[in-house]
């Protein structure tokens, strides 16, 4: 496995390929600051839930630093991520729209994010990746090495895949999240 790039985002900082990127905000506001700084011009960002915003921003910052043409349809790149909380934050938010019989207004816009693999789909759609797209739920106690190894094995089981965005994406709330993504190739 060859690692071509890495990104780590916490509520406090963004580190890409070992370099801390200049930011001024923290928490959810940090993600939106990164989105605006990336000049992604993707208004759908504002409709996304926290997990998707985190994954979107992490993938944007990672991929924009790569010397490769983007947004060309390709079926040899996969997006395979793992999480321990999945979309729990959105599930809870959705529940608030349906838990009161006298105020029962289920939100379609929140409901669409009540699946943890929506984030890998969002990244694949944005980048026109037609390869494998999966989100796995791992125990929180799984070590980073184990996660990476498992994801790598799962990813390259598909013979079509030559490169992939893999890694850890966990969003508990606006103050507690972690993205650690890698762009890898099977060379």
């Amino acid at each position: 496995m060859n690692i071509r790039g890495t990104i780590k985002i916490t509520p406090q900082a963004v580190v890409r390929d070992g370099q801390t990127l200049p930011t001024t905000k923290h928490g959810d506001a940090l993600l939106t600051e990164c989105y605006r700084n990336s000049h992604a011009d993707y208004p759908k960002y504002f409709k996304m839930d926290g997990l998707c915003r985190l994954g979107f921003v992490a993938s944007e910052l990672l991929l924009m630093a790569q010397a490769e043409e983007r947004f060309q349809p390709r079926d040899d790149r996969a997006v395979v991520l793992a999480s321990c909380h999945g979309c729990l934050e959105t599930d809870q938010r959705y529940e608030t729209t349906i838990d009161d019989n006298d105020n029962y207004f289920p939100s379609p816009a929140v409901f669409v994010y009540t699946l943890p693999n929506i984030v890998t789909g969002e990244i694949a759609i944005r980048n026109k990746y037609l390869g494998e797209s999966s989100m796995y739920l791992f125990e929180e106690t799984t070590s980073e090495e184990e996660r990476l190894q498992l994801l790598q094995i799962l990813t390259f089981e598909d013979p079509m895949t030559t490169s992939a965005l893999i890694g850890w994406l966990n969003y508990l709330d606006g103050e507690h999240y972690l993205a650690k993504l890698y762009l890898i190739t099977n060379e």
């Binding site: 409709k47 207004f105 289920p106 939100s107 379609p108 816009a109 669409v112």
Partner: peptide, 9 residues
């Protein structure tokens, strides 16, 4: 289409 549903709500 999701926005349309949200407007209906």
């Amino acid at each position: 289409s999701i926005d349309a549903l949200e407007l209906i709500v």
